[in-house]
Simulated scan of single mutants.
Amino acid sequence: MDTINHTGIRYTVFHLLGIPGLEDQHMWISIPFFISYVTALLGNSLLIFIIITRPSLHGPMYLFLCMLAGADLVLSTTTVPQALAIFWFHAGEISLDRSITQVFFILSTYICESGTLLVMAFDRYIAICYPLRYTTILTNSLIGKIGVTIILRSCSTIFPIIFLLKRLTFCRTNIIPHTACEHIGLAKYACNDIQVNVWYGFSVLMAAVVLDVVLIFISYMRILHSIFHLPTQDARHKALNTCGSHVCVIILFYGPGIFSALTHRFGCHILPHIHVLLVNVCILAPPVLNPIIYGIKTKQIRDQVTYNLFPKIT
């Protein structure tokens, strides 16, 4: 399981503890985790099914929403089953290669979702600022290229982290007080210098997520400028309503993530179990709530969900 080299012990297997300090409450904590995961699976799968099977929903906005739902499924499935295995069966053992794989999928999916939110903001910008050219600009060909670009950007940005982690020798401890593996959370147990990991992780955050947030903000400034120049109150209200779901999802995605990052960097006195719970909220909240938000605020999706669930009533 563990191998010995000239520097001493080199851990190749780690043990995830779950939520540190709350081990005796794991069975109770697993209940909201399980309910949230099932909700995320059903909600996002239903959303993808409806969008794929209904030709009327093959427009740009819905195709981007389908991409977002797919990213939510991958993000939640990468982490929650592992957490439930720890809570239910104390199965926290995880190999180094599996840990690095989990880190890769968590980070790449997060960046993929961030990129999807950016193109959804671009979609709303085109729809409101250039409504007559909407279908000619956002063609299916362009949407396909955007989707491939988002995936390639996500994977190529995070791919170097695999090698940055593989080069490390883990000899401090193999006990990780968490439900999942994080990049720096794993690297800090190495005996090597991890400054490259720290700075690369920071660069990824700045180059990908922060840049996406800035571009989304610029898009919505342009959108708001166009909305307030519309001739009637009804037109302004309709335009704002089309952006409402997306704004809610943006806040839900970036809000907890920024708060968690700040507590991780500067919250020295925050208890470990609080940080772990915040990380899990960041991972679970968007997949659970995104389908609900779009289902409630988007009439076309709401009608299709009602038709699929209650066909006799409709």
Rank of each mutant, 00 (worst) to 15 (best):
M1D: 10
H6Q: 13
G8V: 02
I9Q: 10
H15D: 08
L16D: 07
L16G: 12
I19F: 00
L22N: 06
L22W: 04
Q25W: 12
I29D: 02
I35K: 08
I35W: 04
I35A: 01
T39V: 03
G43H: 11
S45T: 06
S45W: 00
L47Y: 12
F49C: 00
I52Y: 05
T53F: 05
P55M: 02
S56Q: 15
G59Q: 15
F64V: 07
V74Y: 01
A83R: 15
A85E: 09
E93T: 13
D97C: 12
R98V: 04
Q102F: 01
I106A: 06
I106T: 06
S108A: 10
T109D: 03
Y110Q: 11
E113L: 03
L117Y: 07
L117Q: 14
V119K: 11
D123M: 09
Y125W: 09
I126H: 10
I128F: 03
I128M: 04
C129Y: 00
Y134A: 02
T135L: 04
T136E: 11
T139E: 13
I150C: 09
L152R: 07
S154A: 14
S156V: 06
I158S: 02
I158E: 06
P160F: 09
R167E: 08
R167P: 12
R167Q: 11
L168M: 13
F170M: 14
F170A: 15
N174H: 13
N174A: 04
P177H: 02
H178N: 15
A187Y: 04
K188Y: 00
A190R: 14
D193C: 05
D193K: 03
Q195L: 14
Q195W: 14
V196S: 15
G201H: 14
F202N: 08
V214K: 11
S219Q: 05
Y220T: 05
I223E: 06
I223P: 09
I223C: 05
L224K: 12
F228M: 08
F228W: 08
F228L: 02
L230K: 14
T232L: 01
K238L: 04
A239F: 00
N241L: 13
S245G: 12
L252G: 10
I258G: 10
F259G: 13
L262P: 00
I270Y: 12
L271E: 15
P272K: 15
P272M: 08
V276T: 09
N280K: 01
V281L: 11
I283L: 10
I292D: 13
I293F: 03
I293Q: 08
I293D: 05
Q300W: 02
D303A: 14
V305C: 10
T306M: 12
K312E: 12
I313Q: 14
